[in-house]
């Protein structure tokens, strides 16, 4: 009959209305500033620079621990071009102890960043990762949203906290690389030692035939 569906609908909405006062399960809204929905592990929004060191390290320590070697791959790959890097003129040792260039400036304009994660994908040094911090509003939309090295630096512990699985993988990879490079260094050292030993021995004789052929050619 005409109007039957309407009455059913009215009953349904009345049930919803009354039910929302009785059962708390119906109200799924999270009251944001007071309550928060748990952050899921794959959340990402803006990039940060990883440094090795304590969570509350001083600014100098943070900058000293940065994994970034200012290779500028991320700067070149960034689609909206929001990364700005200036290379340093001197070098400092990286985590395996090899001297590397470091970024004298590393700025990300997060008002331009589109959270595509390409910088993270291309970085060969596991130096840039995605953060989960989203409450970034500021009253200064130019300076306030342009982050420099100090603001971008986050410790490895922080990375472990926000993306545990991914960070464990990265750490394993880095440890493996470190072990490999140590082994290599060891092998190189051994080779060098061998070489040194060989240099001490008499020089091998150069075949005479080759030396003699040359003038005729």
């Amino acid at each position: 009959m005409l109007g039957e569906g309407m009455l059913k609908g009215l009953a349904e909405t009345a049930k919803n209305f009354a039910g929302s006062f009785v059962s708390k399960d119906r109200l799924t809204t999270v009251q944001y500033p007071e309550e928060r929905a748990p952050v899921i592990e794959n959340t990402r929004d803006f990039p940060f620079l990883v440094y090795d060191g304590a969570d509350d390290a001083s600014d100098e320590a943070k900058l000293a621990g940065l994994r970034c070697v200012a290779c500028q791959i991320c700067e070149k790959e960034c689609p909206p071009k929001c990364i700005y890097i200036v290379k340093s003129t001197d070098k400092k040792p990286d985590y395996v102890g090899k001297p590397q260039i470091y970024p004298a400036r590393f700025d990300i304009d997060i008002s331009v960043c589109m959270s595509c994660q390409i910088c993270v994908e291309v970085c060969p040094f596991e130096a840039i990762k995605m953060d989960t911090e989203f409450e970034l509003s500021t009253t200064d939309r130019f300076g306030g949203l342009l982050y420099d090295r100090e603001q971008l630096a986050r410790s490895n512990q922080h990375y472990h906290k926000i993306h545990p699985t991914e960070a464990a993988e990265v750490d394993a990879r880095l440890a493996e690389e470190k072990a490999k490079s140590e082994a290599k260094a060891k092998a190189a050292a051994e080779a060098a030692a061998l070489k040194a030993a060989a240099a001490a021995a008499p020089k091998p004789v150069v075949p005479a035939a080759i030396e003699q052929k040359e003038p005729t050619a």
């Binding site: 909405t13 919803n16 209305f17 039910g19 929302s20 006062f21 119906r26 109200l27 799924t28 809204t29 009251q31």
Partner: peptide, 10 residues
């Protein structure tokens, strides 16, 4: 508020 309650919001 009423519409919210009908849609199970606050």
């Amino acid at each position: 508020k009423g519409l919210g309650r009908i849609q199970n919001r606050l």
